[in-house]
Design a protein around this nucleic acid. Structure first.
Lengths: 179, 179
DNA sequence: CAGATTAGTCAACATGACTGACATAAATTC
DNA sequence: GAATTTATGTCAGTCATGTTGACTAATCTG
């Protein structure tokens, strides 16, 4: 089994840090796959996918969210959102109520079933994050947070910080449940 | 615009850490989206997608990789891999050569065009990682690495560590270029 | 009232996953 | 040497989730 030594081609002079950075890139890929894998399994039992998870999550965190807010956060088209949102409404995980001050708006809320599923999924991901932090030094959390935020690029960063800030309840609604 | 104070429903007593953990979960989502967005734009100019990127990346890092190795790393079916791999071969970004000791194997290598594209994509992601590390404390890198590795779960962790370890050249080949 | 905004819908399409079945060549085992 | 296993490739169909473009309906605002 001949394993010739690797000979760096001329001009391929590499930064000694390079390998460490590349392994971070690969870790991000593998970590993200693990991160989504467990919830995906649970969602599949309900006939849902990752797209449903995202909607459940953000409605759970920000009850009373408008459809337009969700489109902003998820950066998908309204047609893509409409498909999964309709399924979540039809199957009783989300309700829509008209906004109090602007009745064109559809404020989104989780039903008890929706809350239960969202919490279950969140619990899985929280446990994984806790494990990961425990695997690092105890003071890793702020470093990880700064790193992830730094991944986002100055343009988007403020918007993301606004989204991840601890949510308050949004505008009250007219109470009229749609459909 | 009435904004009633959020009233925690009875029994929803939350861990004060909870919000910090949830925001890490959301940051992971946003950071990963940013992380893949820039390469996706470049790939689209070639008519390629994220699946092609993964193949290019791992063949770049581990020249001489077998198809079976790639399936192990990516955890997709051979039918899924075959589609993107065929496109990369047909368009001259990857060549396959029979293994020297086992001629059933198709060892994968990048052509010069493949190397150029892989390096371009890698450069974008390295720059982003460097920015993110610069945004955190200088000593954040090991903490981030430990965190991401901790996300992976003890079962898979060893396999991932083997993949991300600095690659050596793999087995020499018969030199016969396939197709 | 006119125009802008919020939301929903219909139709068609692309990507990248999946399953299941089968084919071929080469290596390994009996 | 024949039979089996292994590595790879291929055909066919399905599904989830994204896209564009065009259009409707209700409601708010100047």
């Amino acid at each position: 089994m001949p394993v010739p030594a690797r000979r760096a081609p001329a001009g391929e002079r590499v930064d000694p840090n390079q390998d460490a950075l590349v392994s971070l890139i690969e870790l991000l890929f593998f970590a993200y796959r693990e991160f989504t894998g467990e919830p995906d399994t649970v969602l599949a039992q309900f006939g849902f996918g990752r797209a449903h998870h995202r909607v459940l999550h953000f409605v759970h965190r920000r009850p009373g969210l408008r459809v337009a807010d969700l489109l902003d956060i998820l950066k998908i088209t309204k047609q893509s959102l409409a498909r999964v949102l309709k399924q979540l409404v039809d199957r009783g995980f989300i309700v829509q109520r008209a906004g109090a001050s602007d009745r064109r708006e559809r404020r989104l809320f989780l039903t008890p079933a929706g809350t239960q599923l969202a919490q279950k999924l969140l619990g899985l991901q929280i446990a994984r994050i806790e494990d990961a932090l425990a695997h690092a030094e105890p003071e890793a959390a702020p470093a990880v947070r700064a790193f992830l935020l730094g991944m986002i690029g100055p343009q988007e960063r403020a918007a993301v910080e606004a989204v991840i800030a601890a949510p308050r309840a949004l505008e009250a609604t007219s109470g009229k449940v749609q459909r």
